[in-house]
Design a protein around this nucleic acid. Structure first.
Length: 424
RNA sequence: GGAGAGAUGGCCGAGCGGCUGAAGGCGCUCCCCUGCUAAGGGAGUAAACGGUUUGUCCCGUUUCGAGGGUUCGAAUCCCUCUCUCUCCGCCA
């Protein structure tokens, strides 16, 4: 969430900035609620103060052996008045909270204007799409005969948008995960973490999935209110919830491999073919917790770490910066990496790297102790896919396919494949 | 699943109706002392929110796992929940 103080004191500036996203802030309603809040809070606190003073006086009088009856009578009415004021204040505050929790993050000034993905801006391009001397198949066709990628079996076991992998493809998928984890831990300085795949409401609130985007989540039935994680961002970033981190410990750099579960209500009809959009997929996620001053440098660095995965796999990609209207709710700036898919003859998103400034940290109460002020201040959080494994698998299959339907194994993965250089 | 114990500040840990926002210790900051190091002496050190000022000064409120209750007054008493630990059972 945004700083409530900022919303209060610079409401027109905030509203103006949010307009870039196409978000309309109801300034008048907010100002009115705020004025009421102020009045009520001051009144409530005044009543509390008087109640406290009276109660203290009763204590003293009692200790001195004086008659406390008159004091007791005086404080009686005060209590009722106070209870009413408190109730009203709580109600009002919850209204304000609801509005504030629904306001997206302010955008970094580098973010280009635009309403939707058509306005995203390409930043760079790496590699050149391979020229095939045959018509390249997409990953579905490629694996059809061998049944190494079976959407029918996924449907049988669960339903649409689930997949079963077998044999060499399943192994390639696992190899990708190992390769990514090793790269990030050994060369990029991340700490590997293993985290729960089920999280509670507080965690989802902390990273911003709740209360606004609950329909994208799978929730468990049962005694406890648990949700399947839509990304490792949720459990990993929540590691710092309610913590005050020593300045010397920053930056924290975590990498985690987890499955991700997304209901994505409303996405039906889009990407129905193949494993581009599944309810369950694997991802290797990078998370950084940094000092505010380091955030933008860290954002470039983290994005670079994701790019390197693609480069080592020799997969052509481009890097784009999302425009104002396409940038996610919690993010201040997002780069997407898009990999070339010969089967679709286009670039498709394979990584999304975002800087959330203090937006998540404020919800998380994630702070660090700034040695300059010696006071706790909010950290900045970042994350990015490094990479989405399912889509990387698709990219490898399609880019490394041969005319005979076999697939070469990328050089860097062969060690993870027991030396196998080709999947027949 | 059964039985018991517990949850207090950055950390450890006392308190068990008013004088406690909270003893003591550790850590941290500043100062003094000692030729480095080690040791020692002194002072300070919770957060959130609001008012006020925009001066990091002052005033107030809230917070001792969470929520409710008793009371003029709750860290302290009662109820519910969550979590942690110990023992037993079961289990990868």
């Amino acid at each position: 969430m945004l700083d409530p103080k900022q919303i209060r004191t610079e409401i027109t500036v905030v509203a103006e900035q949010l307009k870039r996203r196409g978000f309309v802030l109801d300034v008048i309603a907010l100002e009115q609620l705020e004025a009421e809040r102020k009045k009520l809070q001051v009144r409530t606190q005044e009543l509390q103060s008087r109640r406290n003073a009276r109660s203290k006086a009763i204590g003293k009088a009692k200790a001195a052996g004086e008659d406390i009856a008159p004091l007791m009578a005086e404080v009686g009415k005060l209590g009722e008045e106070l209870a009413d004021a408190e109730k009203e204040l709580v109600l009002l505050q919850s209204k304000l909270d609801e509005i504030q929790w629904g306001i997206p993050n302010l955008l970094n000034e580098d973010v280009p204007d635009g309403q939707d993905e058509s306005a995203n801006v390409e930043v760079s391009k790496w590699g050149t799409p391979r020229q095939f001397d045959f018509k390249p198949k997409d990953h579905v066709e490629l694996t059809e005969k061998s049944n190494r990628l079976s959407f029918d079996q996924g449907v049988k076991l669960t339903g649409s948008r689930f997949v079963v992998m077998q044999g060499a493809v399943a192994r390639l998928h696992r190899a990708l995960i190992q390769f990514m984890l090793d790269l990030h831990t050994q060369e990029h300085g991340y700490r590997e973490v293993y985290v729960p795949y089920l999280v509670n409401r507080d965690s989802l609130f902390g990273t911003g999935q709740l209360p606004k985007f609950g329909e994208d989540l799978f929730a468990l039935k049962g005694e406890n209110e648990y949700f399947l994680i839509p990304t490792a961002e949720v459990p990993v970033t929540n590691l710092v919830r309610d913590e005050i981190i020593d300045a010397k410990a920053l930056p924290l750099k975590y990498v985690a491999h987890t499955p991700c579960f997304r209901a994505e209500a409303g996405s039906y009809g889009k990407d129905t073919r193949g494993m581009i959009r599944q309810h369950q997929f694997e991802k290797v996620e990078l998370v950084q917790i940094v000092k505010p001053d380091d955030a933008w440098r860290a954002h470039e660095e983290l994005t670079r770490h994701a790019e390197i995965v693609l480069e080592k796999l020799e997969l052509p990609y481009r890097k784009i910066v999302l425009c104002a209207g396409d940038t996610g709710f919690s993010s201040a700036k997002t780069y997407d990496l898009e990999v070339w898919l010969p089967g679709q003859q286009c670039y498709r998103e394979i990584s999304s790297c975002s800087c959330f400034t203090d937006f998540q940290a404020r919800r998380l109460k994630a702070r660090w102790r700034n040695p300059e002020s010696n006071k706790p201040e909010l950290v900045y959080t970042l994350n990015g896919s490094g990479l989405a494994v399912g889509r990387t698998l698709v990219a490898v299959l399609e880019n490394y396919q041969q005319a005979d339907g076999s697939v070469n194994v990328p050089e860097v993965l062969r060690g993870y494949m027991g030396g196998v250089s080709k999947i027949v």
